[in-house]
Amino acid sequence: MGNTCMRRSRLRRGLAGAGALAAVLVLLFSCSPDSGFNTVRDYDVVATFYDPEVDFTEFGTYAMPDTIVHFRDPADTASSDLSREYDDLVLDLVRTNLEALGYTEASDPIADPPDVYVVVWVTLSEWLANSSEDWQDMWDWYLPPSWGPDWGTYYPYPVEMLYRAGSIFIDMFNKAEVEEPEEPYIRIYWTGSINGIMVDTPGGAEDRLTDNINQAFEQSPYLATD
């Protein structure tokens, strides 16, 4: 009788322990919350960075290539090119926002060089941005004197982010540093990026592009020329 009671007691304790252990394990493996990103729009990120030493009120005119350059990591052989369906929309949005901030587009950039250049480009490869990157001769073709073959860009502020393929970048820099660079890197005064937006464009692409490009300028009021 006594042995039976002891066995039952041990059994109860064992079952209680096993139940508690199971509960703890369930908790353990469910205690890290999921990402919470459910739609393409949830992944939209607008990041802007600026050089604090630059006084943007000194600028008034800009020039912008009429083409969005597609950049691919030379080691990346898997990525395919992207549609240019939205290129005009993107360039128009950038142009509209710059003019709202007081910038005037140079009518003849060769005869009358602008204060700043604004270039728009897209990365076809996933890209971990650091404070300096090779320019990959992307702009050799644009406006004399163009970039030298060994020139790169230089961001004098932290912009370390992982960009997905299809991310848009809008970079602004001073023409003087293009014409007579003192170092092989072009110093970027302002950069705006929208992560991955040119790839994830099923439905609502125009709205997403409009909202996010406008947001890049909205959160950068210091760009205003006066």
Partner: peptide, 21 residues
């Protein structure tokens, strides 16, 4: 112990801003 919070809006970083979920 795990703490987490989902936020929307603009988050200020050094010399910049980031907007998104």
């Amino acid at each position: 112990n795990v703490f987490h919070e989902q936020l929307d809006g603009t988050w200020q970083v050094k010399n910049g801003d980031v907007t998104g979920h």
